[in-house]
């Protein structure tokens, strides 16, 4: 397998992982907030001074996503050699 195919495979794996994470976080955040945040008129239930729907619907998944991103960036994502920089066709005639 040459370099293009290797990087393509590696990038597709990264993209699949991100798609899974995005769908999980989107469904959880929008779903949880859809169920518990749309209750204007009632008294807000506060946790540390923050509405509880913000704590569980946004702060919790945010911390989870940040932890996963750090893990992926520093441990799971593979480094690849992107290859040489080939001259742009028609780069300035004397440049």
């Amino acid at each position: 397998m040459n370099r293009s195919a290797e990087i393509l495979k590696s990038s597709r794996r990264d993209a699949r992982f991100v798609a899974g994470m995005w769908a999980t976080c989107c469904l959880y955040t929008v779903g949880y907030c859809g169920l518990f945040a749309y209750q204007p008129g009632s008294a807000p239930d506060l946790l540390f001074g923050i509405p509880s729907w913000v704590v569980w619907g946004i702060l919790a998944p945010w911390m989870f996503a940040t932890a996963v991103t750090c893990w992926y960036a520093l441990g799971a994502m593979k480094d690849e050699d992107l290859g040489e920089d080939h001259a742009a066709p028609d780069e300035g005639a004397d440049g």
Partner: peptide, 11 residues
């Protein structure tokens, strides 16, 4: 909630 997806922006 409006800004929540910034949790996913780096990835």
């Amino acid at each position: 909630l409006w800004i929540a997806s910034y949790m996913m922006v780096p990835l």
